[in-house]
């Protein structure tokens, strides 16, 4: 396997469950114990009551497509071979928004705003798999 050269988020003791979940094919987010609110990306506080007590929970993986864009410009040398490539912005059923992409076999022209999607994971490194969202029924 060739070396993975694209950027990946920094794994820390605090956000490790997100990484571990990705390897198991699970979208794992923090949920505040006191407010029940889910959050992504990792944050040390719940923004409603500033509490620190959060648990890591596997979420449904269901989302709706808020929008998408297609990159033609090369900003990262490691994406040079990928342009044009799509990036999507989804709202997870549990509330948080997430930047992600679609699996290679899904066509950009089939995307529609507010369409339901479901997460799947594609291995990137030994520590991290990328969440990708596929339109439901495609």
């Amino acid at each position: 396997m060739t070396e993975y050269t694209k950027p990946i988020p920094d794994k820390t003791p605090e956000n490790a469950p997100f990484f571990e979940g990705s390897l198991q094919g699970k979208l794992r987010l923090q949920r505040s114990v006191s407010t029940g609110r889910y959050r992504f990306p990792y944050a040390p506080f719940d923004p409603i009551d500033l509490s620190t007590d959060a648990e890591w929970v596997d979420v449904s993986g269901r989302a709706t497509l808020w929008s998408w864009t297609v990159f033609h410009q090369v900003y990262f040398p490691s994406f040079k071979g990928d342009v044009p490539y799509p990036v999507i912005f989804v709202q997870l059923e549990e509330g948080p928004f997430m930047v992600a992409t679609i699996p290679a076999d899904v066509r950009v022209q089939d995307l529609r705003i507010d369409m339901p999607m479901r997460v799947e994971f594609e291995p990137a490194t030994e520590e991290f798999a990328l969440a990708k969202f596929r339109p439901v029924n495609s």
């Binding site: 990946i8 988020p9 929008s67 900003y75 990262f76 990928d82 990036v87 997430m98 991290f128």
Partner: peptide
């Protein structure tokens, strides 16, 4: 987290 997908730049955010 966004860079992992090649997402960057205010312009792309406005494109969304």
């Amino acid at each position: 987290y966004d860079w992992a997908y090649g997402m960057t730049s205010p312009g792309a955010s406005v494109a969304l």
